[in-house]
Nucleic acid binder design. Structure first.
Lengths: 352, 352
DNA sequence: CGACGCCTGGACAACGTTGTCAGCACGCCG
DNA sequence: CGGCGTGCTGACAACGTTGTCCAGGCGTCG
């Protein structure tokens, strides 16, 4: 900027004014300054600007895994909103690791981001207190913050969605519905388990721990759990899978267990169709996923983009000075019947 | 920092030394400083640090669309490498818009990122010249920079992959292979078209423009193009789809055209299986995608994570001072046969 | 014709950090 | 006992920008 001023034969401050479109600069002078800027290839140093002004016009986003379609959709929506507010976006993946979440958040704070959107991996967010003190705002998305951390949060209706999915299966005659979820320490997994149990209770069905398998969506784990479930004396006739990854890996595991491979399309019309490899099982998956429509998989759909958009809107509202009480949004889920969730259970042999 | 110094009864510089783990501070003094830091909840201001030191320890990544699995995988790999180098990552989606790409890149540069990884949407990168002058390094990924821009680039072997996919179909007896690609102004689309043509030429088959449809992967567009292709007097017996989105939307369009829906698995074993709704068509898709294995879709797989990792490694090599000549990496693709690409054409009616 | 106000431009400090250099105390050695 | 090296601490400038304040020139109005 100094060089530009020298080249244009004006004072530093005049260049600053021109660069920032501030009024009070003669048109001819501005022209001379612009010419110098172009000639020298000058670009304003936003680090210095940031330092002087206090606001960085950037926000930080911590998600679980940028490569997962759920979070990448959320991320994309946040990015769009941020850009709309003239903000740049730092992103980082916590990998479901509380320490890494914390390190990322603090690194963003050290960069003095104006705000944060966090999909928390950990359950202790007291480390944020000094940041809040310093004026940084945070909105939690998909999962709430740990106890003692007062912050806005935007969630999906996990309980309601799981309840609806389970009830849907029950309504189609199933009495033995298994639940395959993620680790119960993960908020959404625990909530969905709760919804599953509520639906069972509402239908007067017993809760059978033997029908529940919680853990990461790893192929080997799921194959083992499914083998156990299906080999039991009173096996489930339907499955509720607790998230998108689990649904997909369950389809894969089932295909490998039943030994069946996808086959050419039959002419069977909805709702007789069902994805390949399911055997006689009915299936409802939490989370929609690519090609679920073609595979005929019934799902309880969340809207990750809306989750991200809502969180970002809320954050910018706060950054604009909204000092209202901490809020908790809960976005609805939507059950999309596609065939796999509408199949009746096979006739029971022990009643034959 | 000033407050910390006052609270600890030491000079500013001493706090700086403690914060940066610089040697030459008495252990007792350091302890006092640490206590003051904790008490005040002090966090170093990296904006100021950045300003003083010149390096920001952050890089910028511009991709096409953060919500697309191809780019989100690439993005994730870049993020991992960046974190490994103690760098934070700015991300932005260009949405295939050259102006937006430029704005994002320049915004990152104004933030004084140390380096850039760019999946270019535009073909003119002369706007980068002042940045290069100022010492910013850039690596292009997936697509090369426009003419006149000397920079490292990491690509997939688009020509070779498309050639292999086409040759695979030809080897299975197909003589009428259609190509559904993206807009030809997109580098990868043009390259894959080239590979397709090379394979035809190598097999002595004519290039028939009527078998080629280039455009964005929009359902309506694809449905129209496919209807036209399949309704022609001499329709294709096989398809090569030019990217992941196109493959998925093609499957969807075919399902809606043929009216067939996915059906329960048959016991047909590989390679007789094929995805639902294909009719008698053979299909090879460029890019692997989730569930392609279950659907039995043969693909030419790229490795987006490796693309991102390679680009990031190259960037950090440059940032570490490597001044070698500009390089151009070309990563191999891999043909994964899964059934849809191994089906022979139906017996030709006109030869009855 | 003079005073006043507006428009334009510039000098200077400050943002929070780090690099440079100087100073001080202490201990050791000559 | 003095000089000097060493280990620790501090003062100060600088990074590049912007906010505040002031000065000078010119037009206008009394």
């Amino acid at each position: 900027m100094n060089d530009v001023a020298a080249a244009a034969g004006v004072a530093l401050k005049t260049v600053s004014r021109v660069v920032n479109n501030e009024p009070g600069v003669n048109a001819a002078t501005a022209l001379r300054v612009h010419a110098a800027i172009d000639r020298l290839g000058y670009r304003r140093n936003d680090s210095a600007r940031t330092l002087r002004r206090g606001r960085t016009a950037s926000i930080g986003l911590v998600i679980e895994d940028a490569a997962d379609v759920f979070y990448s959709s959320l991320s994309r929506a946040v990015e769009e909103t941020a850009l709309h507010h003239g903000c740049l976006l730092f992103t980082g993946s916590s990998q479901e690791d509380a320490a890494r979440e914390r390190d990322l958040v603090l690194a963003f704070c050290a960069r003095r981001v104006d705000g944060l959107i966090i999909v928390p991996a950990g359950t202790d967010h007291t480390y944020l207190a000094p940041e809040f003190e310093a004026g940084t705002r945070a909105v939690f998305a998909d999962r709430p913050p740990g106890a003692g951390c007062e912050a806005d949060v935007v969630l999906s209706d996990n309980v309601g969605g799981a309840r609806a999915g389970t009830a849907h299966l029950i309504a189609h005659g199933h009495r033995r519905v298994a639940f395959l979820g993620d680790l119960p320490r993960i908020f959404t997994a625990a909530e969905r388990l709760r919804g599953y149990r509520e639906a069972l209770a509402a239908a007067g069905l017993p809760y059978d721990e033997g029908l529940v398998a919680m853990g990461p969506a790893e192929p080997a784990r799921l194959r083992a759990d499914l083998t156990r479930l299906l080999g039991a004396s009173d096996p489930p006739t339907a499955l509720l899978t607790g998230n998108g990854r689990t649904t997909v890996e369950t389809l894969r595991a089932l295909a490998s267990i039943t030994g069946s491979a996808p086959g050419p399309a039959t002419t069977g019309a909805f709702p007789d169709r069902a994805p390949p490899g399911l055997g006689g099982l009915a299936l409802v998956g939490f989370d929609d996923f690519e090609l679920a429509d073609l595979l005929g998989v019934t799902v309880v759909a969340q809207d990750p983009a809306r989750l991200g958009r809502t969180a970002a809107d809320l954050l910018f509202l706060r950054l604009a000075g909204d000092g209202g009480a901490v809020t908790r949004f809960e976005l609805p889920t939507r059950l999309i019947p596609r065939g796999s969730g509408e199949r009746p259970p096979p006739p029971r042999r022990d009643r034959g």
